[in-house]
Structures are given as C-alpha cells and as structure tokens.
Amino acid sequence: MTQTPQTPQTASSGHAPGSGSTTPPLVIAGAWTLVGVPLAYGLWQTLIKAAQLLG
C-alpha cells in the first residue's frame, strides 16, 4: 500500500549505529560531539559545585 524504502521497524531492529545506513560515521560522531561537549561542560561545572557538599 504505502511505498516505504525502509520502514521504521527495519530502521530500529537493533542494528549498530551506522550499520545498514549510508550516513558517514563521521557525521554521526560530529552530531553527538556537538551536543556532548556542552553537556559535558555543564556536567563538569555542576560536579564542581556539588563537590562543595561532599568535600
């Protein structure tokens, strides 16, 4: 009925990141770095603050 080049079920059937996909791994790594770096900065700053309670 519908023309689906790749159904969501197939897209999520447990393949490792990048397998079965044509997206370059570098693009995926870049996207995760883009969100991971600020998140790591925020986590680090919060841990420094939290250390005042533990220290």
Binding site: Q6, T23, A31, L39
Partner: peptide, 14 residues
C-alpha cells in the same frame, strides 16, 4: 534510504 536513526537523538538534544 540509509539515513541513520542515530542522528535523530542529537537533533532532539539540540
């Protein structure tokens, strides 16, 4: 075809 689903979570996280 072939677009990685692992690009969707970082898009959402942005």
């Amino acid at each position: 075809p072939g677009y990685s689903k692992w690009l969707i979570p970082p898009a959402a996280l942005c």
